[in-house]
Design a protein around this nucleic acid. Structure first.
Lengths: 110, 110
DNA sequence: GCCGTCGTATTGACATTCTATACGAGTGAC
DNA sequence: GTCACTCGTATAGAATGTCAATACGACGGC
């Protein structure tokens, strides 16, 4: 099993979470749903990937979290970007562009 | 350290090796050098990443290898794509395009 | 009260990449 | 002929990130 059709490429999850939260604060599952929406259903982020990532990013100071209630009146933890998180987002976007450009070059090579 | 400036995105190494060999047979270090060339110096693949990957891909039947001599008259192991390797290459290219497109969508979202 | 859903969380396995190190063989200088 | 250097291959060990599976509390509908 080389890779089970690769739900997502390792290294892109942070970028997608940052983008999702750059569009506005959300609770955990909301992040997951927004990622699915903005990638047109291409990326489905499972809880086992999502929550460790959110905790790691909060730890890194990119996200600020607070408890609140969801639309369905459930206890939910809301995340939003910090200033450092916005900088990190910018940085990851340009990193992604560098990589995507390089691979586009590579695939064109003759 | 979140990621040591991420020499490369996990999952793209196979694609780049397949592309390099799709341009013609090469020995190990030659693959490394060709990847650096076609990505305009963006991806530098170290031996410790390269050789395990080559062995894994040979094991998977995507590459066929044979001993020969390099231009510098060194003992070198030459790799070329098998038919399965070419199919795998096509598959990874379209996989990459799906992913790159999805992330482009995501980054445009408002 | 019971059941389905929402939302968060953890555990254990797995694959991949990186750093560091190693070694044999050919080459050129002297 | 031997020293230093490069070429080319190779592996061990550690770190990281993702996934599958599972769990649990609380709310709402009936």
């Amino acid at each position: 099993m080389a890779r089970p059709p690769a739900a997502l490429l390792q290294g892109t999850l942070d970028l997608l979470i940052l983008k999702a939260l750059n569009l506005g604060a959300l609770h955990g599952l909301g992040v997951s749903r927004r990622i699915e929406a903005i990638t047109r259903g291409t990326f489905l982020v499972k809880p086992g990937s999502l929550f460790p990532a959110l905790h790691r990013m909060e730890e890194a100071g990119w996200l600020a979290a607070s408890w609140g209630n969801s639309e369905n009146n459930r206890r939910a933890r809301y995340y939003k970007l910090t200033a450092a998180g916005r900088r990190q987002f910018e940085s990851e976007v340009s990193q992604w562009e560098r990589i995507a450009t390089a691979i586009a070059y590579a695939l064109q090579a003759t």
